[in-house]
């Protein structure tokens, strides 16, 4: 249903400067020098259902692009590997109290089935406000396709299960908003994250409005890395203390923690001129210039000036940053 259309800069100008005017007035504004082009533009917009004609433009005010959310935090990432030993239930407890509704679990190493079920039961018994769970787990002996598919029915909170390090690449749509994924990609550490791709574009009003004001990855996010460190995102270096002796609530009240939320694409180098800036994801963990918080995402291969997508990992200009983040072994998938 949602789609994007590419338009030339001259058409952008026409829309911005002449919104709500008659076609004749628009043509006249250009001294009738570009009548054919203007007709062509209007026809294009009309064909793609981007405009409508009315005798009462005053009745159609521009939409207010405000964005707001009832709670201080909307989503969390919880990372876990074989060496993790922080209290994951305490984290869930705190997230529940903060009314954080969406949680992504990323298990980098095989885990016991019982551990996962214990987490699901824990949320169930609490009648937790947490209402969507994304679970990334490596392919393990106990994983049975049918049983896992059944989990979506038994545990209504699960919105996505991704079996990584799998034999196959497959996406199974369970329902409209529930997905089961198999991927050959080995998701064994947080360094896999931060890739910018058209596949991750999110064409909807919520993202569009949020991106006008806030960072499109980190806003209202909190994360616990494999060591129990509280961060904006597990891939970031700065920790705001360990969960064993700090609370998430304290962290959220720390203005240093929330500072990165206020970096919309309009403040990110290169991205600020990119046509995708309000539908794209962002990454503040891996940037082209690791010392500059407003630098372009490292793992983005798009050049908005040439409109070309290239493999970011082989770009010689990014070599230094790739080395800095020790991403050398990274294989783009």
């Amino acid at each position: 249903m949602q789609s994007i259309h590419y338009i030339p800069n001259s058409l952008y100008e026409l829309i911005e400067d002449h919104f709500g005017k008659t076609i004749d007035d628009i043509k006249e504004a250009y001294q009738n020098q570009y009548d054919d082009i203007i007709d062509e533009y209007i026809e294009y917009l009309n064909e793609n259902n981007c405009v409508f004609f009315t005798d009462h433009p005053e009745c159609f005010p521009a939409m207010n692009l405000q964005w707001d959310y009832p709670y201080k935090v909307s989503n969390a990432i919880i990372d876990w590997n074989k060496n993790s030993n922080y209290n994951i239930f305490e984290v869930l407890n705190q997230l529940d109290m903060l009314h954080c509704k969406h949680i992504q679990f990323r298990f980098y190493d095989p885990i016991e089935k019982e551990f996962l079920l214990k987490i699901l039961d824990f949320l169930n018994q609490k009648e937790s406000i947490i209402n969507s769970l994304e679970i990334y787990i490596p392919n393990t002996k106990w994983i049975r396709q049918e049983e896992m598919e059944n989990w979506f029915k038994e545990h209504l909170r699960i919105s996505l299960i991704c079996i990584h390090s799998s034999f196959d690449d497959e996406i199974i749509k369970i329902t409209d908003d529930k997905i089961f994924i198999h991927t050959k990609q080995q998701i064994i550490s947080s360094s896999h994250c931060g890739v910018i791709s058209m596949n991750y574009f999110s064409i909807n009003l919520k993202t569009f409005t949020e991106s006008q004001h806030y960072n499109s990855c980190l806003n209202r996010k909190i994360a616990i890395d494999i060591d129990g460190e509280i961060k904006n995102c597990p891939s970031m270096t700065q920790s705001f203390g360990n969960i064993e002796n700090n609370t998430l609530k304290q962290t959220l009240n720390n203005s240093d923690f929330t500072a990165v939320w206020n970096i919309p694409k309009d403040k990110v180098d290169t991205c600020k001129t990119c046509e995708f800036r309000y539908i794209c994801t962002d990454c503040r963990a891996y940037t082209e210039d690791p010392k500059n918080l407003n630098s372009k995402p490292l793992k983005c291969g798009y050049n908005p000036h040439t409109n070309e997508w290239k493999d970011w990992s082989t770009n010689p200009l990014k070599k230094e940053a790739i080395h800095y983040y020790k991403l050398k072994d990274f294989k783009q998938t």
Partner: peptide, 10 residues
């Protein structure tokens, strides 16, 4: 899908 947009009544 039907276009649904903000409207200002007279």
């Amino acid at each position: 899908p039907n276009r649904r947009v903000p409207y200002q009544l007279p």
